[in-house]
């Protein structure tokens, strides 16, 4: 028996389902990923502090070996702790970004619709087949969009306390400990070069060179410090905006969600400027 199926019935689900745009989530996660991406540009880590100090100790004692041979295993372990914290956060934002990407659920329903058309159970014109396919795709894509929206908000709420704690810990090990090690290194440079300047066996030119070398190291250290501080500020900002969206359970399409994302973008830009200025 062949029945004529009014195509309009297939349009109904699509009409009742409002369109759900996940663009704000995509923007938010892209901004967060961009901010976090500065971690890769830092160019300074625990192993680097170890090598820096090891080299300095060899230079001051005129120790020339064929290889540098620095014992930096504990420093490398510290780097793996830092990397573990960072990686979990980066993967979270990558996941949210992919989950919100428009391509993820752009379903193509040509196969089942063509199969239906090929059967003799339903008589459909080419135009009706095309309309059914389009509306069915619209309905399916919209409903999966709603599903994704709910899941994203659920994940954001669940992840928020952990994300905040990890941000706090990562900020701490970078700002207090990594920069703390740099400060210790700076004190060692200071005492070494200051001792050179009061050494009566050195001439004025040599003392001048020691002074210049010291200030060059101070300048380099300041650049590292600024980069770390601005990176930590980026991490804090990202966690703070995530928190304000998660606790208020802001609807993805809401004006407030967009405003918070826009604010994140603007405030991050200022920090990028600081970071990039010293990264040149």
């Amino acid at each position: 028996m062949v029945c004529k199926l009014p195509a309009v019935f297939l349009l109904v689900p699509g009409i009742f389902l409002a369109c759900t745009s996940l663009k704000p989530v995509q923007q938010l996660s892209e901004e967060a990923r961009r901010g976090l991406g500065h971690f890769h540009k830092l160019g300074y880590n625990y192993a680097e502090t170890c090598t820096m100090d090891c080299t300095f100790q060899k230079v001051r004692t005129f120790t020339v070996d064929r290889r540098l041979n620095c014992e930096c295993a504990s420093y490398q372990k510290a780097d793996s702790v830092v990397w573990g914290l960072f990686r979990a956060m980066e993967q979270y934002w990558m996941g949210l970004s992919e989950l919100a990407s428009p391509g993820l659920t752009s379903y193509d329903l040509s196969a089942p619709v063509q199969s239906l058309h090929a059967s003799e159970f339903v008589s459909l014109s080419e135009g009706e087949v095309s309309a059914i396919q389009k509306m069915a795709e619209f309905a399916v894509n919209t409903s999966t969009g709603r599903f994704r929206s709910r899941r994203i908000l659920h994940y954001m709420k669940d992840a928020d306390p952990h994300l905040r704690l990890l941000t706090e810990k990562l900020g701490f090990v970078l700002e207090q400990n990594l920069l703390g090690l740099l400060e210790i290194q700076q004190e060692e440079w200071y005492t070494h070069y200051k001792t050179q300047t009061i050494n009566s066996e050195l001439n004025a030119m040599e003392k001048e060179w020691a002074t210049e070398k010291h200030y060059q190291l101070v300048e380099d250290a300041e650049k590292i410090r600024l980069k770390v501080v601005s990176l930590v500020a980026m991490l804090d900002l990202i966690a703070e905006k995530h928190h304000s969206l998660a606790v208020t359970a802001e609807k993805i399409g809401s004006e407030n969600f967009r405003n918070i994302t826009a604010a994140l973008s603007d405030e991050l830009k200022d920090l990028y400027v600081v970071f990039e200025q010293v990264n040149e």
Partner: peptide, 13 residues
Amino acid sequence: ALNQLQSINLEIK
């Protein structure tokens, strides 16, 4: 916190 976030990441995947 790391374990919790990693399991959320897995769930997202």
